[in-house]
């Protein structure tokens, strides 16, 4: 019984992570402005990575490798939002026509 529960949790986590990654890929290609694109890109690096790492942890069971996986997640959670922040800041400082075009887009 416990095995079935574990397999179910593993499948759920992996599928959820895959869903988020695929959503992120489509979003990055689909959105038209760099700040809009940042949103799915940041989502893939944080939530998608967390779910897939948790799936790996559930699959292998608790071991020293678990700590390494969690360390990877922690480092990504420190680094990835900072990257998004820097890109957004650079867009705001350098791209003058950006918000103009976006406002035009929302009006239609």
């Amino acid at each position: 019984m416990l095995e079935y529960i574990r397999a179910g949790v593993f499948a759920f986590l992996l599928l959820a992570g895959l869903f988020i990654q695929i959503t992120a890929v489509i979003g990055v290609n689909r959105f038209r402005f760099s700040v809009n694109r940042l949103h799915p890109a940041g989502m893939a690096d944080t939530l998608g990575l967390l779910l897939m790492a948790l799936a790996a942890v559930v699959y292998t069971g608790f071991s020293p490798v678990t700590l390494k996986i969690l360390l990877v997640v922690a480092l990504f959670w420190i680094a990835s939002p900072v990257c998004s922040h820097l890109i957004a800041r650079l867009v705001r400082e350098t791209d003058e026509k950006h918000f103009e075009a976006e406002a035009k887009e929302w009006k239609r």
């Binding site: 420190i78 900072v82 922040h85 800041r89 400082e93």
Partner: peptide, 20 residues
């Protein structure tokens, strides 16, 4: 001129990450 200057968020992240 176009370089982002003192960024507090980046600095506090770098304080954690650089030694590692």
């Amino acid at each position: 001129h176009f370089e982002p200057g003192d960024d507090v968020i980046l600095q506090s992240a770098a304080r954690v990450l650089t030694p590692l």
